[in-house]
C-alpha cells in the first residue's frame, strides 16, 4: 500500500531524512517511532504530498507522490501534529467543509459527516464552536476530519500528544478500530503506545531507519537473553550475599549474576540466563534448597523503551526517549 525507496529530504543546513526505505502492507497499523527531530514528520509530509522529497521515491496505493499528487491526496487522510481546525467554525460545519475539499458532495457528504461524527464521538458537539472544545474533542474532530473521505491510507502524526490518560485510551481504541479498512501510519515518541496499538514498528533516528519489524519480533530479537530479578531473604540471621551469588551462578543456564542491594534483610539479585534457557524453576529450587526464603522471582522484560534506547544510542535519542 505504501512503498518508500531511498527517500531523502535535505534542507539548506541539515538532512532531515536520509535514504530511507520501507514498505507497508494493506490494512496494517504501523508505528513510526523516533525521538523528536528524527524525521518522522518530514517523512509523513512527503507521503501526504505536503512537500516533495529531495531524492528517492514514495508511492501510495500505487501512485507516485511526485507524478500524481492528486491521486495520492484523494487516498490519504492526514492528521498533522496540531489538528488543522478553524476555531471560528462549528464542528459539523467544519466536517462539511473538509468533506467538500476532499471531493464529497450532496447526500454522500451528509452521510459521511454523520458517519464520522458517530465514529469519533463528536456528534453531540456538532453545533459547538471548535474554539470552545476541549483538547480531547479537538483531537477527535481532527481524526474525524482525516477519515471523512474514507481514505485507504491514514497518516497520523502524534495523535495522542497532549491528551489525558483517558482520552489517550479512547483515541487508541478508535485508531485500532479503524485498522483493517485503512492502512495506518502512526508516529509517536511514546513507546507503550506502539506496543499497544501497532502491529509493526519502524524505528527512525536521525533520518535513518534503524529497525523495522513486528513489535513481538523486535522485542524478542533484541532481548537475546532473559533477565530475572530474584529477591532472597534468610530464614534467620544474616545472609551472606557472596554465598547466594555463588549458589545462583551454579544453576544450569545462568550466565551472570549481579548483586543489587540489600534492604531490610532482603537481598536483590539480577540473574541473566543464556539464550532460550528457562531458568526460573531451577533458580527457585536452588534458593529454597539452600534454606533461604524466595520472596520474589520476576522476569525483567526488556521493554520497547530499552530496545529503542539501544538502537538510537545517541545523546539526542536519550533525550527523546526520556520523555
Amino acid at each position: 500500500m505504501i512503498k518508500v525507496e531511498g527517500l531523502s529530504k535535505r534542507y539548506a543546513r541539515h538532512v532531515a531524512v536520509d535514504n530511507i526505505s520501507f514498505e507497508i502492507e494493506k490494512g496494517k497499523i504501523v508505528g513510526f517511532l523516533g525521538p523528536n527531530g528524527a524525521g518522522k514528520t518530514t517523512t509523513m509530509r512527503i507521503l501526504t504530498c505536503f512537500m516533495p522529497p529531495s531524492s528517492g521515491m514514495a508511492e501510495v496505493a500505487g501512485f507516485n507522490v511526485m507524478d500524481s499528487p492528486m491521486e495520492v491526496k484523494k487516498r490519504i487522510g492526514y492528521l498533522p501534529e496540531t489538528p488543522p481546525l478553524y476555531p471560528e467554525m462549528e464542528v459539523g460545519e467544519y466536517l462539511q467543509f473538509v468533506g467538500k475539499l476532499k471531493g464529497l458532495s450532496g447526500n454522500d457528504l451528509a452521510k459521511r459527516v454523520a458517519d464520522v461524527s458517530d465514529r469519533c464521538n463528536v456528534a453531540e458537539v456538532s453545533k459547538k464552536l471548535i474554539a470552545k472544545l476541549s483538547k480531547g474533542y479537538k483531537q477527535r474532530v481532527g481524526l474525524a476530519q482525516a477519515i471523512i473521505h474514507n481514505p485507504e491510507v491514514l497518516i497520523l502524526d502524534e495523535p495522542t500528544s497532549g491528551l489525558d490518560p483517558k482520552q489517550i485510551l479512547e483515541t487508541r481504541d478508535l485508531i485500532k478500530s479503524l485498522a483493517g479498512d485503512h492502512t495506518i501510519i502512526l508516529s509517536t515518541h511514546i513507546l507503550p503506545e506502539v506496543e499497544q496499538t501497532c502491529e509493526s514498528v519502524i524505528i527512525i533516528s536521525q533520518g535513518h531507519v534503524v529497525a523495522r519489524d513486528s513489535v513481538e519480533n523486535l522485542t524478542s530479537r533484541l532481548r537475546g537473553s532473559e533477565t530475572v530479578a530474584v529477591e532472597v531473604e534468610p530464614r534467620s540471621g544474616e545472609l551472606d550475599t557472596a554465598v547466594v551469588q555463588a549458589k545462583l551462578e551454579q544453576v544450569a543456564g545462568v550466565s551472570r549474576v549481579v548483586y543489587r542491594d540489600t534492604k531490610a534483610g532482603r537481598s536483590h539479585f539480577e540473574v541473566e540466563s543464556l539464550q532460550c534457557r528457562p531458568v526460573r524453576a531451577e533458580l527457585a529450587r536452588a534458593v529454597v534448597e539452600s534454606g533461604w526464603n524466595l520472596n520474589e522471582l520476576r522476569g525483567v522484560n526488556l521493554s520497547l523503551e530499552d530496545i529503542f534506547l539501544q538502537l538510537t544510542n545517541t545523546d539526542q535519542a536519550a533525550s527523546g526517549g526520556a520523555k
Binding site: 509530509r45 501526504t48 492526514y78 498533522p80 475539499l101
Partner: peptide, 14 residues
C-alpha cells in the same frame, strides 16, 4: 500559523 494550511495543501485541490 495555525497549521491549517496543511489541511488545504494535502487535500485534492490545486
Amino acid at each position: 500559523r495555525s497549521g491549517t494550511i496543511e489541511l488545504l495543501v494535502t487535500s485534492p485541490i490545486t
